[in-house]
Simulated scan of single mutants.
Amino acid sequence: MENNHLIDLTEQNAHQVLESSRNAPVLFYFWANMSPESLDMKPLVEKLAAQHASHLTVAMVDCEQQQMLAAQFGIRALPTMALFDNGKPVDGLMGPQSEDAVLEFLDKYLPNQAELAFKEALEKMDQGEYSEALTILKTLEADLGESGEYKLTLAECLIETKQFDLADATLATVLMQDQDARYKSLTAKIELYRQSADSPEVRKLQEAYDADPENDDLAFDLAVQLNQVDKHEEALELLMKLIRKDLNFADGQAKKTMMDILSSLGQGNEIASKFRRQLYALLY
């Protein structure tokens, strides 16, 4: 019965298994052939071990074969469950239990679905897959939206996907007690973006366009410059305005530029989604 999540406990591996609870909870199940109730529950315990394999180890203790261990754990009745976390006993159940009772018992100590999904998003970020992580994070707002860690993680993904205004708005909701070094680093990235975006070329084109807003050539040049300094929403607004006036403006360059920007932003980008819908409505 040996595998990564379901093991037979012996005196030889007991210390190692207890130490492993410092990384993930370990559920000890004490049973014996002489106890029909404990035998009846074994399939349930084995099923739970498989279902929670990624974040729970189940150690089966045959009390007839491992009498010394049973005595060390102070077992007085069968079946008995003992949950260890961080090297220490945290809870237990004694006697026959229904599946619902065991699940309720475990739910207090195992990560819920939202926490597991959040962990998946963090793994995506470690791999540089920020758009995919952002897609996951958006589904967790109802469960984790008030968490400072969630807000900082969301803001980081928004920055990495070049959605700086949304990132700034998210950081504005972070409470004072959560404004740690990570928060300061993220706000600094937004400030650096704003400084780099305020280039002389962009300022000059913006001033010229403001003075002559019907000049489509200026609008196109400004859109290109804005995109280069990651002001994607402003660039897309200008390009959408041009395409609405003339679908083939500049021999189709406005449409091509817009589609290139949308493609570079990816599927998980809210700004891209908004303008993608507008463009498709116009085209189809």
Score class of each variant (00 low, 15 high):
82 A>E: 13
103 L>S: 01
257 T>R: 14
215 N>R: 10
111 P>N: 08
143 D>I: 00
227 N>I: 03
172 A>E: 14
38 S>N: 02
231 K>I: 01
230 D>E: 11
133 A>E: 03
11 E>W: 09
30 F>G: 07
113 Q>K: 15
228 Q>S: 12
39 L>E: 07
172 A>Y: 01
218 L>H: 02
191 E>D: 11
26 V>P: 04
97 Q>G: 01
39 L>M: 12
217 D>G: 10
112 N>I: 04
133 A>M: 09
59 A>W: 08
199 S>L: 09
27 L>F: 05
150 Y>Q: 03
100 D>R: 10
221 D>P: 00
237 E>G: 03
98 S>E: 03
82 A>S: 06
5 H>Y: 06
91 D>V: 04
11 E>P: 02
267 Q>E: 10
204 K>C: 04
165 D>N: 02
73 F>C: 05
175 L>R: 04
264 S>K: 12
189 K>L: 11
254 A>Q: 13
168 D>K: 07
157 C>F: 09
128 G>A: 00
22 R>F: 02
274 K>Y: 07
236 L>S: 01
139 T>W: 11
146 E>K: 09
220 F>W: 08
97 Q>V: 07
134 L>C: 05
106 L>Q: 03
25 P>I: 10
124 K>E: 04
114 A>W: 10
194 R>T: 09
103 L>T: 11
142 A>N: 11
268 G>F: 08
92 G>R: 15
205 L>M: 09
79 P>I: 05
115 E>L: 13
6 L>W: 13
94 M>T: 08
78 L>M: 10
146 E>A: 15
118 F>P: 06
102 V>I: 13
277 R>D: 07
144 L>A: 10
251 D>H: 06
249 F>A: 14
228 Q>M: 02
11 E>I: 10
104 E>N: 06
253 Q>H: 05
82 A>T: 11
135 T>M: 14
141 E>C: 00
67 Q>D: 01
13 N>F: 08
41 M>S: 02
17 V>F: 12
221 D>I: 01
47 K>R: 13
264 S>A: 13
72 Q>L: 03
91 D>T: 13
